[in-house]
Each structure stands twice: as structure tokens, then as C-alpha cells.
Simulated scan of single mutants.
Amino acid sequence: MSRDRFQCKNGALGLLFVLLLSACGRQQVDPNALIIREQGSFFVGGTVVSAPGTFDPIRQGAFNWAGPDPQGQTLHGDHAYVFYQIPADARSLPLVFWHGYGQSAKTWETTPDGREGFQNLFLRRRFAVYLIDQPRRGRAGRSTQPATIQAIPDEPFWFGIFRLGIWPEFFPNVQFSRDPEALEQFFRQITPNTGPYEPPVFVEAVSALFDRIGPAILVTHSASGGLGWRVAMRNPNVRAIVSFEPGSNFVFPEGEVPEPIPFAGGQAWATSAPLEDFLQLTRIPILLYYGDNIPEEPSPYPGQDQWRAFLAMARLWQEAVNRHGGDVTLIELPKIGIHGNTHFPMSDLNNVEIADHLFKWLQQKGLTE
């Protein structure tokens, strides 16, 4: 064989090999794959406590089960932990997800029954996502103030508060998996406070996050709902709020705070702010969601009855913000034909339907560019 013929044959074989590799590569790419351009984590906000004196690395350098001598030492605490992912071709406004009481960023991750949570569902819709563990919770557990963590059996209590049912029975129409493993996972995602529950500490840290990342949409759940109003009043980088079942701490202008609304075992109360601060809430679109199995009349079951009172307060708050020129939409899911949602619509069996509804609202408000 001549040298020219050998080179030609080798070239043809090489081209065929490249084409085969290219075809194999195309076959191996999952069209449903999430393509993440950047991801990472960081801490934001917080403070530093310094003890007087001078640190002695010899005298104080040995590990002591009783705890170190603090003289001359520092403690960094009260920060938030943030995990973020930015997809390819991300939209201009990220979503910042903030969990509720007794929870962490896990709220937005894989659902208790193993499906995709809002983290992935909105990455697929091309939003960058930032997931928070608020100060003194989860991966932000370093507190500057002491607390005692009680080991008290309480899971049937949370089963009722989160409106899965009336222990031990699920509600007949509930959008929560009946697989025992799902309930096992759900109970294990509950996490304690590692320091006192101090709202100003949480608001400062989340506001610092918006200072760092710039304009974004805040998505809150339950107890972070009231905290979210405070963040928006102090930080113009909050361009919209979506709040899933906010409870207490609705903010009204001074002189317009309604009377507390009683419920079985307690009362729903509101807070006040100067009118100038309150009006910041009228400058952004706000969406509230409430799920199913919330009674309209008083109930003897506190787990349900507290949400009757919170929803009643939310209606008053919507009216107050809109009366001052705001744009608050309150969605009661059963009233629009979406039934069975618990206190966790973002991880219920129909969470894709909830995500679709939310996405359409974001589109309507011009927040998806």
C-alpha cells in the first residue's frame, strides 16, 4: 500500500471515529438534565463577640470537654448560611427561598417522598436559586447567645400544626404521600433553634444577603413570612415577595393595627411600623398562598384553628396594603380548585401545579425576564 493511500485511509477512519463519538455523546445527553453554570455556598450577616484578655495558645490550646477558656478569644455567630445554584441562561431576578419555624433549607429541596422540590423546579424554569438556613438554625447553628435544646417527643403536634391531618389519621384529601417513609423523612427534617428566637437577628442577615446579590424575589414560608415584610421594608433589592402561609407578625401602619384574633390555644396578633416604612410594601408585588383544611368557623383542634385566625389576619393585611396603593394577591388554593394542600405546598404531591401557578404570576408581574 502506498503511503498516500495509507494516509487517506487513516484519515477516513479517524473522521468516522470522531463522528461516532459525537453521536454517542448526543445520545448520552439527557434532554431533561439540569445544566448548572455555577453553584456554591457562603455565610452572610452575623456578628463577632470578643472576650476580654489575651489568648495564650499554650495554656488555652488543649482540648477540654468542659469547654475552652474564652479569655482573649472570639466567636463568629448569628449569620445565615446560603447555598446557591445558577443555571445556564439564568433569568435576571433570582429566587431567594427562606424556610419557616423548625425547618431549614431542606423545605425547598427534595420532597419527603423523593420528588423534585422547588429548588429544582425553578432551576428548570431558569431561575437562579438561593436557599437560606437562617441564623441559629441548621448549617447556620453558631449562635452568640446560649440556648437549651430540649429533646421532647412532639411529632404528632407538628402533624396537626402542619395540617397533614388529625393524628394519627391523614385528612381524606391531603396532598401528602401515605408512604410511611415519606412521613419518616418529613419528621426528620425538623430542626431546632440553637439560640434564642430573635427576629431582628434574622432580618439583618437576610437583608445582608440582598445587599450581596442585588435585586431578587423573596420566597418565604410560615414564620419567615412576617420576617420577610421587615426585610422588604429595609432593603429595596427585594423586588417581590411570595409568601406561603405566613402566620403572625403581619405589619400594619401605626394606628391601624387590628385587634388580635383569638384561636384555640392562642391568638393571632399583628405588629406596627411607621407609615413611611410600611409604604415600602406597597411598591412591590406580593403573593400569598394558603392551602386546604383551614376552617372558616372556630374549631376545637388548635392545629387547624390557628390557621383560621392567621388567614383572617392575612385578609385584613391584604386590604390594608392595597388600601394604601399596594399590590397584594391572596390565593386560597381550594377557592381556585386546587385541593388538599398542607402547610407545605412546595413539597406536596401537587407541587408542580403550585410551581406552575406561581410561575404564571411571576410572568404577569414582569418578573421573568
Score class of each variant (00 low, 15 high):
118 F>L: 15
110 T>V: 15
117 G>V: 11
116 E>V: 07
131 L>D: 03
140 A>G: 00
119 Q>S: 10
140 A>S: 12
127 F>L: 08
147 A>L: 06
116 E>P: 03
141 G>E: 01
138 G>V: 02
110 T>K: 13
123 L>R: 09
114 G>T: 01
127 F>V: 06
140 A>H: 05
126 R>G: 04
125 R>P: 03
119 Q>P: 00
125 R>E: 04
111 T>S: 13
148 T>I: 02
132 I>M: 10
129 V>A: 11
111 T>F: 09
152 I>K: 05
124 R>N: 13
116 E>R: 14
134 Q>F: 06
120 N>D: 13
139 R>H: 05
118 F>H: 15
125 R>T: 08
123 L>Q: 10
127 F>H: 15
136 R>D: 05
150 Q>G: 00
147 A>K: 04
126 R>L: 11
110 T>N: 09
144 T>R: 10
121 L>Q: 15
131 L>C: 05
124 R>L: 13
125 R>D: 06
112 P>T: 14
141 G>I: 01
112 P>L: 15
150 Q>A: 02
137 R>Q: 06
133 D>A: 10
133 D>L: 12
128 A>K: 07
128 A>I: 04
120 N>H: 14
134 Q>V: 08
141 G>R: 07
148 T>W: 06
122 F>R: 09
130 Y>M: 03
142 R>I: 03
110 T>Q: 14
146 P>G: 01
114 G>L: 13
149 I>M: 01
145 Q>W: 03
128 A>T: 04
120 N>E: 14
136 R>K: 13
112 P>N: 14
135 P>M: 09
133 D>W: 12
144 T>K: 02
113 D>H: 14
148 T>Q: 05
126 R>K: 15
151 A>K: 10
152 I>C: 00
111 T>L: 13
109 E>M: 15
144 T>V: 03
137 R>F: 04
124 R>M: 12
140 A>W: 03
136 R>Y: 05
142 R>M: 06
140 A>D: 02
137 R>D: 00
127 F>T: 08
151 A>S: 07
126 R>A: 11
144 T>E: 02
133 D>V: 11
136 R>G: 03
145 Q>R: 10
114 G>E: 11
129 V>F: 10
145 Q>C: 00
123 L>P: 05
112 P>Q: 14
152 I>E: 04
142 R>Y: 01
122 F>N: 09
148 T>A: 02
151 A>G: 01
134 Q>N: 06
129 V>N: 09
126 R>S: 11
145 Q>H: 05
127 F>D: 07
145 Q>N: 02
132 I>K: 08
148 T>E: 03
117 G>H: 12
120 N>Q: 14
145 Q>M: 03
121 L>F: 13
146 P>L: 06
